[in-house]
Design a protein around this nucleic acid. Structure first.
Lengths: 139, 139
DNA sequence: ATTATACCAGACTAAAATAGTCCGATATGA
DNA sequence: TCATATCGGACTATTTTAGTCTGGTATAAT
């Protein structure tokens, strides 16, 4: 799984949000400035993050975004999956896996396991852990 | 990591090769027919597989390809890495990771660990194991 | 020798995924 | 009522992936 700018943006933006004092909504303008992410693109990403209930929004002036849960209850997998265009696991074999009498369909199964491994890895890391790292490194 | 057709083709083709009796070279034409992979594309893939010393070639009529090692000494990671256009781990942070005073560069580090995990997974599976699965499923 | 078969190399094109923009809404605090 | 935000979707640009095309070289068989 590549670290695309989309994933990096999403993670950095959500972490930026998580780093701000809880309770008050953070505007995308702020995040855009701090993280150097194009505002329009950030809006697109946060639409998905909201639909996946990683964040919730406050509309209107002084509006912005808030995490829906504690940083300890959100994982990297939540954030990454939210901004994914296609579902994370689209390696299903539906006639396209070249299975035939000489070669049963096993690459698809292999990748299913691989994706499980990747998911477990990303789901094992909470935003809180990352925040701790950030605070630690800043000293 | 997505299961692209390139990776699936490469794996299926090498497995097809590994399934043929050892010693005699297997032509891409045969593999192309059995696995339903465009011959020209297969040639392109096998060029890389040869450069990475996963296979070796025998030129001329009655020529073809052979595995360089035993199926037990080759892993899925070897095959996948061979056909990769860019190196598997290109998630390095060279000014593009948005690190700043509010956000040290940790997504890149995170992905480095993730890639390690992915590599370990793929490197833990030998072609021999896959072949065993194939033979087992055919019964 | 000649021919058919196969590998070999690189440039080229096509399609798909990613990255990002643009425009015009709607909501709301000041 | 205005400035500041979120919203939604269509649009474009760029990059990656997928695959083709052309022409070459090696070699076993005829």
């Amino acid at each position: 799984m590549r670290l695309t700018t989309k994933r990096r943006y999403a993670l950095n933006a959500v972490l930026d949000l998580a780093l701000q004092p809880r309770g008050c909504a953070v505007s995308l303008k702020e995040i855009s400035d701090r993280q150097k992410i194009p505002l329009a693109y950030l809006e697109k990403l946060f639409r998905k993050l909201r639909q996946s209930e990683v964040v919730k929004s406050v509309r209107g002036a002084a509006g912005g975004y808030l995490l829906t849960k504690n940083a300890s209850e959100l994982t990297v997998a939540d954030v990454v999956a939210a901004v994914e265009e296609h579902e994370l696991d689209r390696n299903h074999c539906s006639g396209f896996c070249n299975c035939n009498e000489h070669m049963p369909c096993l690459t698809a199964n292999l990748w299913k396991e691989l994706n499980r491994t990747v998911y477990d890895f990303l789901n094992g890391i909470t935003l809180e852990e990352l925040i701790r790292k950030i605070r630690h490194e800043k000293q």
